[in-house]
């Protein structure tokens, strides 16, 4: 078997101490192959975003085993390893610094990592996400939600990562813009051979983007399925099935039958 891109084993994440302790993620394990796109689905409080933040190195309170390209992740990460994992956040209004131009947002990571062809790379990055040079000196408030998310994607890709973590990347966007951004993400994964972990509450988005997925509830994985199993409705767990029914729209009879999980 080839070396998995991401290995997660027995990952647990908790916040607080003593009786305030909240176990946000409990013993979660999964692996993602190079070039694969993996989905984490669940409702709020399921711990799906918490896993993503821990994987990105934004949350130090975890235990278990995590590795990227076979390199074990510890409390401190060397800069080179950090570069490999980048993230696209949910809220395009909160993830770009409101007082920085697109130019600064894209060039700062390059300066930090000592790239010398900043100019060319910034232009190429804008091109790659379909924005072009006219957007370079705009501030985030001069961009639409979709354009902001494209800038966020360009920023995530500018350090040439291997893994891109997508935290509900389109849930704040209009459906027509969502389609454009999802298509862009699909293309970029193919062109650059990226590995994705996509977090979403939207089964449709996950079915479209991912080949495998884990359905989560209150910090635990209730079911792991392939995208085919999801789209053919072959889910085993009652909670997963209820999620599936709920995503199909309003139906009085189905709602009356909802269980409490």
């Amino acid at each position: 078997m080839t070396q998995p891109m991401i290995e997660i084993e027995d990952l647990s994440i908790s916040f607080g101490l003593g009786k305030d302790r909240v176990d946000a993620v409990k013993n979660v394990s999964f692996t993602v192959a190079p070039g694969e796109s993996y989905g984490l689905v669940g409702e709020s409080g399921s711990g799906k975003s918490t896993i993503l933040r821990a994987l990105a190195g934004l949350n130090p309170f975890w235990s278990g085993h995590m590795a990227i390209t076979g390199q074990k992740l510890g409390a401190k990460r060397p800069r080179a390893l950090r570069r490999l994992v980048q993230m696209v956040f949910q809220d395009p209004f909160g993830s770009l610094h409101p007082k920085h131009t697109v130019d600064r947002i894209l060039s700062e990571p390059l300066t930090i990592h000592g790239f010398d062809d900043v100019e060319t790379r910034v232009r190429a990055a804008l091109d790659r996400v379909g924005l072009g040079p006219v957007f370079r000196f705009r501030y985030p408030h001069q961009l639409s939600g979709g354009q902001r998310q494209r800038v966020a994607i360009a920023r995530a890709l500018i350090l040439e990562p291997k893994v891109v973590l997508l935290d509900e990347p389109t849930s704040a966007l209009d459906v027509s813009i969502q389609a454009e951004v999802l298509n862009l993400l699909t293309d970029l994964r193919q062109q650059l051979g990226l590995t994705y972990v996509l977090v979403s509450h939207d089964l449709g988005v996950v079915a479209h983007m991912c080949s495998r997925l884990s359905i989560m509830r209150t910090g635990e994985v209730v079911e792991t399925a392939s995208a085919d199993e999801l789209s053919e409705g072959r889910l085993l767990h009652a909670y997963s099935r209820q999620l599936l029914i709920a995503s199909r729209g309003y139906d009085t009879a189905a709602i009356a039958a909802f269980g409490d999980f």
Partner: peptide, 20 residues
Amino acid sequence: RGLLACPPEIDHRRSRLPVL
């Protein structure tokens, strides 16, 4: 019609989504 076609569907997977 464009809006209706845009969102990804669970049981009808397409390699690309139609763009409005």
